[in-house]
């Protein structure tokens, strides 16, 4: 465990908690893509199949449970909470994410570290996490609504990606045979898509700020 990865895990967790608290506090999920949040929950559920079989460390086990619980809590809030669900932009959040799930699964069947259930689902979760932001990106381009996507959320999400890339560079130079090609390549694609999301976030934020200025 290195400080970059620990900080990356912490900023990732904080970004999820910021979103959950924002939705719960404002009782609104306007501008947030339920599909992206469902994909994130699926990422954690398929990545941590080894939760009860492989014990890496207490930290690892606790964090896996927290990631699964917090991502499911967001999906539950957006689907079931009577007040929150009313503010969901159902007719704007129309990205066909089932095709993305299928494409990632086929890719995981072809490209994995070992052809076992656990490894295929692990690779699937890595590919899925890379593209999970797409529905949110499309919704943001359509709605331009950043009320619930606070700047802090975007900041911590970016910090998570940046710190993980530094972690991989650090491990590459300090560990004799650190090879996580699937995670690294997919992580770079994910960071590229996040950069695109941040760009559209900035455009929306700028537009909204202009709109709010006293005429």
């Amino acid at each position: 465990m290195n400080i970059f990865r620990f900080a990356g895990d912490m900023t990732h967790l904080i970004s999820i908690l910021i979103l959950l608290l924002k939705i719960y506090a404002t009782k609104s999920c306007a501008g947030i893509s339920l599909k992206t949040q469902e994909l994130y929950a699926l990422v954690f559920l398929t990545r941590y199949l080894d939760l009860f079989t492989d014990y890496v460390s207490l930290y690892n086990t606790v964090m896996k449970i927290v990631f699964i619980a917090s991502s499911l809590a967001i999906v539950w809030c957006m689907r079931r909470h009577p007040l929150v669900r009313r503010s969901y932009d159902k007719d704007l959040d129309t990205f066909r994410h089932q095709y993305v799930v299928l494409a990632c699964f086929v890719l995981a069947l072809l490209l994995n570290e070992k052809f076992t259930i656990q490894e295929v689902f692990w690779a699937f979760s890595i590919y899925l996490e890379a593209v999970a932001i797409l529905p949110q990106l499309v919704l943001l381009q359509r709605s331009g609504n950043v009320d619930n996507l606070t700047g802090q959320y975007v900041l911590f999400l970016g910090a998570y990606r940046g710190l993980y890339i530094i972690n991989w560079i650090y491990r590459y130079f300090t560990e004799d045979h650190f090879t996580r090609w699937i995670a690294c390549v997919s992580g770079l694609v994910q960071t590229g898509l996040y950069a695109d999301f941040f760009y559209y976030y900035y455009l929306s934020w700028k537009t909204n700020t202009k709109l709010k200025l006293p005429a």
Binding site: M1, R47, D54, M63, K64, W122, H177, F178, A183
Partner: peptide
């Protein structure tokens, strides 16, 4: 060796 295979990243 084995311990490297274990997925230690979240």
């Amino acid at each position: 060796n084995k311990d490297d295979d274990v997925k230690d990243e979240l």
